[in-house]
Design a protein around this nucleic acid. Structure first.
Length: 786
DNA sequence: CAGTGAGCGAGCTTCCGCTTGACTT
């Protein structure tokens, strides 16, 4: 029997807090929300002013029962979920689901997990803020209405099982529109003039690299300029020294951690979050889903001590950062090491690398500015008014740079705005004087091409979404996985193209010209829209532009804020939104036809029939013949790397060349075809995948038989046991170790059993005792071919 | 895993945010 029951959201937090409070307190976790709308129905009663129909989530039933028991025995129940909209709602749902009494219930909040903060919270309890709960309810209901009315519309008009939502559909839109921008990009070029100078000082030769601030648009202008420099002399006209400083980046939030881990360590967003979760659960870092850059006073104190000890007092400058992020709720601290005096930890290599990144960023954020002296040198040309400039940076005091420097995305560097920050700091290690005469070693006019904007990476998409205020720290990673699961977007590489550029060189007063070659536009691990993504986006843009408007979330957030301040009723807001939205859903349902993106490619030379490409029930498909005609059209699915946007008639006709019948083997037909999982050989109702080096268009019967033989041998090697009395029962060795295969289903073998010693009866028993697995969802029904 | 796309109709899919394990073929 406990006197006080404290309920927080996360079990790791519960453990820590229990240590701070005496034994009169039991601390439990709700594991996030305990109630939600039913997944299978709309669960919003439109007639009853949008009343939500909540239920205890299946995986929370046991937990709620336990909490209910504990709370009935406790004198006081402290609801200590996070201090934000969702957290307030979690407390209210707990209050409802546990049947708590008002007089026994206290709502407390804290932003940092420190003893002082917790004790202070206990001293200052309040009631549940029902306005904030209403705002969360509005958010929840709006998302449900949008998601559950738009998705079925897509099933009907575009393709089954698709989805749309306030967040994911905007993420897809960003990726689709970036691709369009790239497609419409008009490349131009200009000539950049650089020069290499040298001079003697105290008997030693120094060299300086300089550049002309302006570029020439045409080759003729560039050449004319270079020619005008034949025989010219060069002189330092003035030198400008400017002190400047640089400040460290704020501590990590979820979004900036994902970005830096991608740039510096090459981690995917999901991988970063998995590792961070590990670090959090083992107590090494603070909570990893946060939009706050705030550090507790305890952390600031620790940082000061660590920096002083390691680098000296000069390097300390503690600061409190403030978020600039739209809609930030700041329920937690920034992501930081729990113990700042540990600059490394035990763990896997990746855990260590992520931890060290967090440690450096946190420490650097509390260190002094770097003091820099920037030197600009103007170099005059005797034959021209134009000038060259050379710049150099000297670090006078490194400050935080001793520990950490933030990285930038390539496009930011390209844009030039971050050039100085990101280029390696160059130094003038000599004293230039005004009037120094410089020797020209070489001058070059090089043709430079403008570059299209870069495609999004996972991390740069998260960054963009955060800027737009779309999605939350807990949903960035899942959203990226959803839009890939729906096949709106794939992750892939773009091959660059080789591009020629001209270079005009002036050396020893002689001009030479040559052509260089450069690989342009190669990109790795980028998010690319698929045909389905493009089509769904076009559909939403045509009929529901307001929902995928980049400002939609920001606008409804303003409404939610009004609700949370008690200035507006949540039902009223939803009522007003739903009136227009639902009308549009109904009119689109009734007035629009199938939205398949059908495109007439041309005419099949063999039959004279029309050839189309479109998005069909199973994805992008090519079609020969008209649907309305007497004769049934022929269909062939597009390959993974093909798109209805770019595929040619020729390529489409090739798709219809399969299946190719190769001949006979063991009295059965051998054919080759291309399926969902790539090219395969089919023989006697069995399938054999082709090797990467095999071409299904040219493969012959001999090679096919070879492939069949190889696969059979491999299966043989993976077979541990077979039984004469029942050929359907097999013990096989698979990816996860030995298992039993029986009647097209697989069963586990207990770890302590040697699979080689199993008898037929043992196997049958294991099959029968296997826990009844829920029928695989969405298992496609298949006709038995007798 | 490896088919599919006439039309019909049954029965399925789906949102965003809060949180962790259970479990894999």
């Amino acid at each position: 029997m406990t006197k006080n029951l404290v309920i927080v959201e996360s079990p790791a937090k519960a453990k820590t807090i229990e240590g701070f409070l005496g034994k009169e307190y039991t601390v439990k976790s709700s594991y996030g929300h305990v109630r939600d709308l039913n997944k299978n129905t709309l669960s919003v009663n439109i007639e009853k002013d949008f009343e939500p129909e909540y239920e205890i989530s299946d995986d929370k039933k046991a937990l709620v029962a336990e909490l209910k028991k504990l709370s009935s025995q406790a004198q006081t129940i402290w609801l200590a979920s996070d201090e934000d909209r969702e957290g307030e709602s979690i407390s209210w749902h707990l209050y409802e689901a546990l049947d708590l009494k008002h007089k026994d219930t206290k709502r407390i909040v804290f932003h940092e997990i420190t003893k002082t903060a917790i004790l202070n919270a206990i001293e200052n309890p309040r009631d549940i803020d029902m306005d904030l709960v209403a705002a969360q309810q509005a958010r929840r209901v709006l998302d449900r209405l949008v998601g559950y009315e738009l998705s079925p519309l897509l099933w009907k008009k575009v393709k089954p099982s698709l989805s749309a939502g306030r967040v994911q559909s905007v993420a897809v839109r960003l990726i689709v529109e970036r691709e369009e921008e790239i497609k419409n990009f008009q490349q131009t070029s200009a000539y950049r003039i650089t020069a290499q100078f040298s001079f003697l000082q105290d008997g030693q030769e120094y060299s300086i690299a300089a550049e002309m601030p302006n570029r020439f648009d045409t080759e003729a202008e560039a050449r004319a300029f270079v020619e005008s420099c034949i025989g010219a002399s060069y002189k330092v006209e003035n030198i400008e020294k400017k002190p400047s400083s640089r400040t460290p980046a704020p501590p990590f939030t979820t979004s900036t951690l994902q970005q830096e881990a991608a740039r510096k360590l090459g981690f995917s967003v999901a991988n970063t979050m998995r590792l961070a979760q590990q670090l959090y659960e083992s107590g090494k870092i603070t909570y990893m889903r946060t939009d706050s850059v705030n550090l507790s006073s305890l952390a600031l104190g620790m940082a000061k001590k660590v920096i002083t000890e390691n680098y000296g007092a000069d390097y300390v400058k503690t600061r409190q950062y403030h978020t600039k992020t739209k809609g930030a709720q700041e329920a937690h601290e920034a992501i930081r090491p729990t113990y700042l005096d540990q600059n490394t930890i035990k763990g896997t290599a990746d855990e260590r690398r992520l931890y060290e990144l967090i440690w450096k960023r946190t420490i650097a954020s509390q260190m002094s500015d770097a003091q820099i002296e920037r030197t600009n040198v103007n170099i005059g040309i005797s034959t021209s008014d134009k000038k060259f400039t050379a710049t150099g940076e000297v670090i006078l005091f490194d400050g935080f740079l001793k520990v950490y420097m933030e990285s930038y995305d390539d496009d930011e560097v390209e844009n030039g705005k971050l050039k100085m920050e990101s280029s390696p700091l160059s130094t003038f290690n000599f004293q230039l004087k005004e009037g120094t005469v410089l020797e020209l070693d070489k001058m070059e006019a090089q043709q430079r091409f403008t570059r299209h904007p870069l495609r999004y990476t996972e991390a740069s998409l998260v960054k963009k979404m955060e800027e737009l205020g779309i999605g939350r720290p807990s949903t960035y990673a899942p959203t990226i996985s959803t839009i890939q699961k729906r096949e709106y977007v794939t992750k892939g590489d773009i091959k660059g193209t080789v591009q020629a550029f001209n270079v005009i060189t002036l050396k020893n007063n002689k001009i030479t010209e040559k052509t260089g070659k450069e690989n342009y536009g190669a990109e790795k691990g980028k998010l690319l829209p698929t045909d389905i993504g493009v089509l769904v986006n076009r559909f939403l843009l045509q009929y529901f532009e307001s929902i995928i408007d980049y400002n939609f979330t920001a606008n409804v957030e303003k409404e939610f804020d009004k609700i949370s301040e008690g200035q507006c009723e949540w039902n009223k807001m939803i009522r007003e939104f739903y009136a227009g939205f639902h009308k549009q859903v109904v009119s689109t349902t009734e007035n629009s036809g199938k939205f398949s993106g059908e495109k007439l490619l041309g005419v099949d030379p063999a039959t004279g029939k029309n050839v189309y490409v479109k998005v069909g029930r199973f994805g992008p498909v090519a079609q020969i013949g008209d649907t309305e005609s007497e004769e049934k059209p022929r269909f062939a699915g597009l390959r993974k790397n093909q798109s209805i946007e770019t595929i040619t008639l020729e390529e489409v006709l090739k798709l219809f060349e399969f299946p190719r019948i190769l001949g006979e083997y063991e009295g059965k037909e051998v054919s080759v075809s291309v399926g969902r999982f790539g090219p395969y050989v089919k023989h006697a109702n069995a399938f054999y995948g082709l090797a990467k080096t095999d071409n299904p268009a040219t493969i012959d019967i001999e090679r096919a038989i070879e492939i069949i033989g190889e696969k059979r041998q491999k299966d043989e090697e993976n077979t541990i046991l077979t039984f004469d009395n029942d050929p359907e029962m097999k013990v096989l060795n698979g990816r996860f170790g030995p298992y039993i295969a029986y009647k097209k289903k697989n069963y586990r073998i207990p770890k302590d059993v040697d699979p080689h010693t199993l008898t037929y009866e043992d196997c049958l028993k294991l099959v029968e005792d296997a826990p009844k697995t829920a029928p695989k969802k969405a298992a496609p029904k298949r006709k038995k071919n007798s």
